[in-house]
Design a protein around this nucleic acid. Structure first.
Lengths: 265, 265
DNA sequence: TTGCTCCTCACGTCACGTGAGGTGGC
DNA sequence: TTGCTCCTCACGTCACGTGAGGTGGC
């Protein structure tokens, strides 16, 4: 196509323009802002009619193909699948309902992505690992992989409200909490005296915790997916993530608390 | 696993709990809130280590598998691909940079989806077809498929600013505009007199349009993808979407406008 | 002749899902 | 015995992309 007299407006030129343009696949793809692979894909999917061919087999696209291709591109951009686009040409369903369904889908997707972004912001702000369970993003700094593993399991078992109680407790424990340090440092082969010392140290905060959040005395009762599910998940996780000495210390501290509560009550 | 004394807290139970639980694939999947197919997929992708087996070949998962599975799930939920998750275990790159890249991606995706939602809102409000080019959603009501095809091609060729000029012109044309109706009704075999009549009727608004938006006298000059691209796309589209009689009327109206402008100037 | 374009066909990608065909446990 | 679960393997899905292998046009 030669450039015409620049003083001449488009309609004047168009009236003399060859009616049957013949675009190649590449030209068609360029005009529509897409790729030749995409054009061929739409042929295979029978979304786009095959054009005439030249003697050597080259495809010759017309304006109708460009318009259809642009239509398909537009519909995929708003979120329709190719199958849905094919159906649109068929028995005409309520187009308004289709649009509303699309919109609702987009709304849900956006909400989900925004939640993820909020979680990423917490991850950045508090410098915690990316795989930190979202409920503990603000308090997980400095936790070991094992601790985070336990929190991940807990996150599967408890509701948001209970998870927030756990988070609140964790936020109240200072980094240099003596009982926590003693517990964490308990060696695998700790003797009974060491275990007892850790338990005694742990007991007071354990007592105040269960007084503040009574559900913590048996989390099976508040597990939304059922007590069996909670027990099957949390017991092994706790048993696996703490050493036997630590588990003994926990059990012993628990005993101390129960005795103390019974005496005070 | 039997339900233990309900008065006993979790740590106490855990200390007596068998250290090596053995979950089946289904149990593991349930605990992680996913499917057995997903678990097996992660094995094939070598993201999740294969557990021990029983004599009959059944897999026996441990807590470590659950924790790893939860980690993978968490990372896919924030948008990492499985390949990226595998890389995370490898040479540790800057994790903060990875998070920021993820966040930027999410931000762009959300922005795109919100643009689409805004376009859908226009589609619903103005009752136009879903494939209407977004720039013309507010004025495309009642347009023929051919007209919308032309607008789709134009949308590929012009910038947002020029498209908005076109939209503004269309908004100003009342539904019962005489010249427009005359032009639209021009029969295929219209005689010269009918064509001339349509041209004369069109001329005034055509003149005021080019005076208001001078670029319209030759849109090749403002086409962001170049004059050749604009001409190759728009000329055939115009030539194809209007009848020869209509094209003649457009060309003639253009001539009238040019003559009038020359006389007045 | 050279480089560029066009064509078809088969297979790859991504994160799984589906289904076949067979075995083990209660 | 019946129904339920487990296993592997191969192929399907979605919207294309990649690459091979070959031909045509300037």
């Amino acid at each position: 196509v030669e450039r015409d007299d620049p003083g001449e407006a488009v309609p004047a030129v168009a009236s003399r323009y060859a009616r049957d343009v013949a675009w190649s696949t590449r030209q068609l793809a360029d005009l529509a802002g897409t790729t030749v692979k995409t054009v061929r894909h739409y042929h295979r999917m029978e979304l786009l009619a095959l054009p005439e061919r030249t003697a050597n087999g080259y495809k010759q696209y017309q304006v109708s193909h460009l318009v259809r291709l642009l239509q398909i591109r537009r519909l995929t951009e708003v979120g329709l699948s190719l199958a849905q686009i094919r159906e649109l040409s068929g028995p005409d369903q309520d187009p308004d309902a289709a649009v509303r369904a699309l919109d609702a889908e987009l709304e849900a997707t956006i909400a989900r992505l925004q939640r993820v972004r909020a979680e990423l912001a917490v991850v950045i702000e508090h410098g915690v690992p990316l795989d930190t369970p979202p409920a503990f993003g603000t308090v997980a700094r400095g936790l070991s992989e094992r601790d985070r593993g336990l929190l991940a399991v807990l996150s599967q078992v408890l509701d948001a409200g209970e998870l927030d109680d756990v988070r609140a407790l964790m936020a109240d424990v200072p980094d240099d909490d003596e009982a926590a340090l003693l517990f964490a440092a308990l060696p695998e082969d700790a003797d009974d005296a060491a275990i007892e010392a850790a338990a005694v140290a742990l007991a007071p905060s354990m007592r105040s915790s269960t007084e503040r959040f009574p559900w913590m005395s048996d989390l099976r009762e508040v597990a939304p997916r059922g007590p069996k599910f909670a027990q099957d998940a949390v017991l092994p996780a706790v048993a696996d993530l703490f050493s036997p000495a630590q588990l003994q210390a926990l059990a012993r501290a628990n005993e101390i608390v129960r005795k103390a509560v019974a005496e005070d009550g």
